[in-house]
């Protein structure tokens, strides 16, 4: 793997060119450009907020901020994985002409989406600032926001690993991308995006003695754990209403044991994905 990494480093300029090209192509013929990629999550979150607050009656102050804090990272994961799944196949004619480290294609797709994610996050911070100006209260940024870069890097590692693995697999079996898009859709419900992780911990549908175990198992999913972490480090702890029996659940602190497991999973996925990709990459052009 060390040799592969040196080779990748030697081609870093090409990787960067791929990222620039991907960003350019996306907005080449659209007038509003980057605005579209911010508009999509904003509208989605607006609709979600309206539905949850007014139809389902979940009164949580500043609800849309909690949705955005998890939905933006989820969008990054989803789009990066779906884009990279196609990245090798769509460039197969180029691959058949010339050598360059093949991993540049999926990594480039991930990085292009990562840049979008960072821009969307800065829009999110601007949004928090506006909310604070309109309803001055506590400081909108918590001190724990200093952990944010680590969480972002962990998610980047996880996304890279998943992208490398899936793009290699999808090159041979095109069913993979359909399977992945179904799984990503289900992931939206299995992560604390439209609800709070506390609502899992105190869910009335689960017998009380199992709730701790379910909460633990639920967060073994690294994406779910990352979404919980994003909220905990960026936003104020929030007592959330419990559906069904009523009442409020107290906010839980960030569980560092679970976070450590999540970090280990993210980094292992990255290296395993890269190893798998390297094992397969010479067969891409020869796929039967």
């Amino acid at each position: 793997m060390r040799g592969e990494l040196t080779e990748l480093w030697r081609y870093r300029e090409l990787l960067w060119s791929f990222v620039i090209r991907e960003l350019r192509i996306r907005y080449k013929n659209s007038v509003l450009g980057f605005f579209w990629s911010v508009l999509n999550p904003l509208v989605t979150v607006l609709v979600m907020t309206l539905v949850f607050e007014y139809v389902m009656g979940q009164r949580v102050p500043n609800y849309s901020a909690y949705i955005l804090a998890a939905y933006l990272p989820y969008m990054f994961f989803q789009l990066a994985v779906l884009d990279s799944a196609q990245s090798v196949l769509s460039q197969i004619s180029l691959l058949k002409k010339i050598y360059f480290p093949r991993e540049i294609l999926p990594i480039g797709s991930v990085l292009a989406n990562f840049i979008h994610f960072l821009l969307a996050m800065s829009v999110f911070f601007a949004y928090l600032l506006v909310i604070w100006l309109l309803h001055p209260g506590d400081n909108p940024f918590r001190a724990t926001v200093i952990y944010l870069p680590f969480i972002v890097l962990l998610q980047l590692a996880l996304t890279l690993g998943a992208a490398l693995f899936i793009s290699a697999l999808n090159t041979f079996y095109e069913d993979v991308k359909y399977l992945v898009s179904v799984m990503l859709y289900l992931l939206l419900f299995l992560c604390p995006i439209m609800y709070f992780s506390e609502q899992v911990r105190y869910a009335s549908g689960i017998p009380a003695e199992y709730r701790g175990t379910v909460y633990f198992l639920y967060h073994l999913n690294p994406v779910a754990m990352l979404m919980t972490a994003y909220r905990k480090v960026m936003l104020d702890p929030q007592n959330v209403p419990l559906p069904g029996k009523g009442g409020l659940a107290e906010s839980l602190p960030l569980d560092w044991t679970l976070m450590a497991i999540c970090a280990a999973v993210c980094i292992s996925v990255m290296f395993a994905g890269y190893a798998f990709f390297n094992k397969k990459k010479w067969q891409f052009v020869e796929r039967p």
Partner: peptide, 9 residues
């Protein structure tokens, strides 16, 4: 030619 261009092993 493709092998010389390092496309195939």
């Amino acid at each position: 030619l493709s092998i010389l261009a390092r496309v195939y092993k």
